[in-house]
C-alpha cells in the first residue's frame, strides 16, 4: 500500500486529481491511498504522517523548495506534477509517475 500526498493551493483542485488517481489505481488494481491538502496545511500534513511520496501541484511549484525542505527531513520522495497531468484526465500518467519512482 502506497500513501501519496498531493499538495495544491487550497486543497480543492488536488481533491479532483486525487480522485482521478484513485479511480485509475482501482482500475489497475494498484493498492494506493491518496490525500490532498492546501499549502498552508502542507507542513503539518508532511511532518505528522507517514507518506511514501509527495506530489506538488503545478500552480504551487514555485513553493516546491519549501515543501521539499519538509519532505527531505523525513526522507520522503517529492515530485512536481507535470501541468497537463493535473486534470481529471491525468490519472493514468500520474499513476505511472508514482510507480516509476
Amino acid at each position: 500500500m502506497k500513501k501519496i500526498l498531493i499538495v495544491c493551493s487550497g486543497g480543492m483542485s488536488s481533491a479532483i486529481v486525487e480522485k482521478a488517481l484513485k479511480t485509475e489505481a482501482d482500475k489497475k488494481g494498484v493498492e494506493l491511498e491518496a490525500s490532498a491538502v492546501g499549502s498552508p496545511q502542507a507542513q503539518d500534513a508532511i511532518e505528522n504522517n507517514d507518506w511514501d511520496m509527495i506530489l506538488v501541484a503545478p500552480q504551487v511549484r514555485n513553493r516546491f523548495d519549501t515543501f521539499k525542505g519538509y519532505a527531505d527531513k523525513k526522507g520522503i520522495t517529492i515530485e512536481n506534477i507535470p501541468p497537463r497531468d493535473y486534470s481529471p484526465l491525468g490519472g493514468p500518467h500520474l499513476l505511472k509517475l508514482i510507480e516509476e519512482s
Partner: peptide, 17 residues
Amino acid sequence: ASMIPALFNINEPIIFG
C-alpha cells in the same frame, strides 16, 4: 471533466487540462 468544478470556481482542470 472540468465543467462541474468550474461551477464552483475551481478551474485548475481547465488551466492545466
